[in-house]
């Protein structure tokens, strides 16, 4: 593990008085920096918080924003909940799959994109909608999706 990452984790642990409440913020940090939560990080956090590794592992797999596999540089979160579905959300997911040449939860071979179908993002007034990283894209059409993805390439 990089020493700078370790330092930042330690800072979070101190901020929360060494309690397990530090776990979610620490996992957020690692996910953002590394694109995934490695076994090494899981063991480290487990030992620092005196928790069994399986407990930390369980956290990573329970929450959808964390992943064990290394994610791409850009994470596409496309809403598959009812309000978007009613407005053609399915086509948006299909278009993304076609355009990127990958299936749900996969990462493109060049590691640029990861595609994640997600539950409602609170963008129902601009359905169908998706987010790329922390940017919001609403009122999508097949054409718009293609343009957005090509703009990233």
């Amino acid at each position: 593990m990089k020493s700078r990452l370790k330092e930042r984790i330690e800072k979070i642990l101190t901020e929360y008085g060494g309690k397990r409440q530090a776990l979610l913020p620490a996992l957020h940090l690692v996910q953002e920096r590394e694109g995934h939560i490695s076994e090494e990080v899981i063991s480290y956090l487990a030992s620092r918080l005196s928790l069994p590794s399986v407990d930390v592992y369980g956290m990573v797999t329970f929450y959808s924003l964390f992943s064990l596999k290394k994610e791409g540089k850009n994470i596409i979160r496309v809403c598959v909940s009812l309000p978007c579905y009613l407005r053609g959300g399915n086509q948006i997911l299909e278009t993304l799959k076609e355009e990127l040449g990958i299936k749900e939860y996969e990462t493109t071979p060049d590691k640029r994109f990861t595609l994640e179908p997600v539950s409602c993002l609170g963008l129902c007034d601009q359905a169908p909608a998706m987010m790329i990283n922390d940017e919001v894209y609403g009122n999508l059409t097949k054409r718009k999706v293609k343009e957005i993805i090509r703009g990233f390439k």
Partner: peptide
């Protein structure tokens, strides 16, 4: 806020 169709608290 997570109930599909809700975007008020935001």
């Amino acid at each position: 806020e997570g109930e599909p169709g809700t975007f008020k608290d935001k």
